[in-house]
């Protein structure tokens, strides 16, 4: 059977979650691999959530927030914007491929953008193959 990655998606309540809703309302089709968890703001996404997702078996993590300047809470997304590169640096040191974690921006009216990000991310993670750091093979060798 072909490998289908499991990707955890964090969406902020105001822009990206609504963008994802719009993709559905407009009946756009996208890869079913990203499963969305709603947070109020992308600024709520703790680096440990990302690490935890990998620990629990995710093959990728997608964090979506409002575009710069459009944050419902003024500047929550700026915090995410600063936090994520630091996290990615750390993940790289742990041997986690860069493409497995993606931070991007989707507004409430960008259903099409949501779909293209999800499809693109899914394709990239699918190409990388399963995330093996937790698997027995990785531990043993």
């Amino acid at each position: 059977m072909n490998f289908e990655p499991k990707i955890v998606g964090f969406c902020c309540n105001w822009c990206s979650y609504r963008g994802a809703d719009l993709a559905g309302t407009a009946r756009m089709k996208c890869s079913p691999n990203v499963r969305i968890i709603r947070v109020m703001c992308s600024g709520r996404v703790e680096p440990t959530f990302v690490v935890k997702a990998f620990e629990l078996g995710a093959d990728g993590v997608l964090v979506l927030g409002c575009h710069a300047g459009d944050c419902h809470y003024s500047e929550g997304n700026y915090k995410t914007m600063r936090r994520m590169p630091l996290l990615k640096k750390m993940l790289a040191q742990m041997g986690i491929e860069e493409e497995r974690v993606r931070l991007d921006w989707v507004s409430a009216s960008e259903g099409d953008r949501f779909v293209s990000i999800v499809d693109d991310m899914t394709a990239k993670v699918r190409a990388l193959g399963p995330f093996k750091n937790n698997s027995k093979e990785a531990k043993h060798g």
Partner: peptide, 25 residues
């Protein structure tokens, strides 16, 4: 209730009601 402070607290002293770290985990 954006939760930005919760994500940043180094002592994990802040709880975001209804979006607690445990709930999201």
């Amino acid at each position: 209730g954006c939760g930005t402070c919760v994500a940043a607290c180094p002592s994990a002293a802040i709880t975001h009601k209804h979006f607690t770290t445990e709930e999201i985990m």
